[in-house]
Every structure is written in structure tokens, then in C-alpha cells.
Computed example of a mutant assay.
Amino acid sequence: MASKPLSSPPSWAAVPNATLSGGIVAQIRAAVLNREIVAGQFLGSEAALSEQFGVSRMAARDALRTLEGLGIVEIRMGARGGVWVAQGNPDRLADALAIHLKLIGITSGEVFDAQMAIEEMAARLAAERRDEADLEHLRAVLAELSSLKSELDRFADASMRFHEAIVRASHSRILLAQFHALSFVLEPVLRPNLTSASAVRIVRHHKLLLEAIESGDGAQAARLMQERLAYQRARTLSQETDPASRAD
């Protein structure tokens, strides 16, 4: 994607000495959220920005490093060097969200609650918005899943890809990013509890879910997704408190 020139730069406010780089970060972050600046837009050189903000080059450099670390700006070298507003990266968003969920000590129950909200809506939207390419992909993953009931590691991967395919069929980028983040957290919890018996039940359920999406029945797709995830949630949390039990 071609970079966009800065046609009308925001009027940056001088930063008080007490806040320095933090003030620059706050202003640029707010400008992105307010759409005063957009992805691919050139903001200027480090020297020009330090002058505009009324701070030293060192303070500007510290701020830009922070913004770069947050994925808000891209710092380029060479003839077209300078500071540019970064392009969005859903994968980076999902990875960062998953890490921070773990760092704040999110529980499995909380993750399941969020997953249920996301995937129920995704199933409903998939039934309403799916196109033939989406359906072909879902059918292919389900066929693969059906052939892997005796290979549990590969089955677990395929089952997660089936859920991902449903979320993709919703054509909602924000649901997909959230799904990826939660799947990073849940996958290590779910995989050890998978059994051959549960694999058979999962395939049976996924077939019903695909039928609902194919027929365009959003309410039925959402209901089936809710039933499966609620059951999975209850069994997984039971396994955490009673390791003798087996989730399915």
C-alpha cells in the first residue's frame, strides 16, 4: 500500500518538561484514535517532531521508540526515512492481547465466557454472511477433521481451524482478532483433555453446525455454538478442579 503524505499535520502541543516523552506518546496515540492521522501517513523526521513538540531530540527519540514498540509508528531509515504511522496488524494485536491476558492472571472461566460471546456471534454472522468460498473451506476442514478422530494432536489442530473458519466466515475482523487471542490462551488448556470419545462427539456437533450455516439459520448456528462451548466450559473447569475427570 502506498504511503500517504501528511497533507495537514496536527497542531502538536508543546510538552511540559515533567511529562516529556509520555506527553508525545499520549498526543500521537490520541491523534490515531481520533483519526487525525491514519495508517501510512508521514509524520516527519525525529528532528522535526522534537521541534514541533518543543522537546529535546532525546525525549523525542524515547517517545518514538515507545510508539514503535506499541506498533503505532514505523521508523524508517534511508532516503525515505522518518516517522510514519504504522499499518494495522491484527496478528500482532491478537498476540499482544493473549500475552497480557496471561500476565494479568485471567482465569479459564473468564476466557471461556469471552469465547462464548465471540463465537456465538460469529456463528450467527457466518450463517448470514458466508459465501461459497467460506462454505467450501468449512467443508474441507470438517472432512479432514472426520478423518483424524484417532490422531488426537492433529484432530485438535483441525478442530481449532474449523472454529477459526467459522469466525472468518462472519467477515468480522475484530471478532477474528479476538478469537485468535483467546485461542492462544485456551489451546493449551483444551488439548490435554481431548479423548477419542470426545472427538466423535465434536465431529457430530460440527456437522450440525455446518448444516445450520449452510442453510443460513443464524439463530440455530448460534444456539449450537453456545451449547457446545457451554458444555466444553463446564467439563474443562471440572477437569481443573478434579484431574480424575476427563473433558469432552
Rank of each mutant, 00 (worst) to 15 (best):
A114W: 03
A114K: 06
A114D: 06
Q115I: 06
M116Y: 12
M116I: 15
I118G: 01
I118L: 07
I118E: 02
E120A: 11
E120F: 07
M121R: 11
A122D: 02
A123F: 01
R124A: 08
R124D: 07
L125S: 03
L125P: 02
L125G: 01
A126Y: 01
A126Q: 02
A126E: 01
A127E: 03
A127K: 02
A127C: 06
E128R: 09
R129C: 07
R129H: 09
R129S: 08
R130V: 08
D131V: 09
D131P: 08
D131A: 11
E132S: 13
A133H: 12
A133P: 09
D134G: 07
D134N: 09
D134P: 05
L135C: 12
L135F: 13
L135E: 12
L135D: 12
E136T: 14
R139H: 11
R139E: 12
A140Q: 14
A140H: 14
V141H: 04
L142I: 10
L142C: 11
L142H: 09
A143W: 13
L145P: 04
L145S: 07
L145N: 06
S146M: 06
S146G: 10
L148R: 09
S150V: 15
S150K: 15
S150C: 14
S150W: 15
E151G: 11
D153I: 12
D153S: 15
F155M: 06
A156F: 11
D157C: 14
A158Y: 07
S159F: 11
S159A: 15
S159R: 11
M160I: 13
M160H: 13
R161N: 09
F162E: 03
H163L: 08
H163R: 08
E164G: 05
E164C: 07
A165T: 04
A165M: 05
I166H: 00
I166T: 02
I166L: 05
V167L: 02
R168D: 03
R168L: 05
R168E: 05
A169H: 02
S170D: 02
S170P: 05
H171G: 05
S172C: 05
R173E: 15
R173V: 11
I174H: 13
I174N: 11
L176G: 01
F179A: 00
F179W: 03
H180E: 07
A181M: 01
L182K: 00
L182G: 00
L182A: 01
L182H: 00
L182M: 03
S183L: 08
S183H: 09
S183N: 12
V185P: 00
L186Y: 00
E187W: 12
P188V: 02
P188K: 05
V189L: 06
V189G: 02
V189W: 04
L190G: 04
L190N: 04
L190K: 03
R191M: 08
P192M: 07
N193R: 10
N193F: 09
N193D: 13
L194F: 04
T195D: 06
T195W: 08
S196L: 15
S196Q: 15
S196K: 15
A197E: 15
A197P: 09
A197C: 12
A197R: 14
S198K: 08
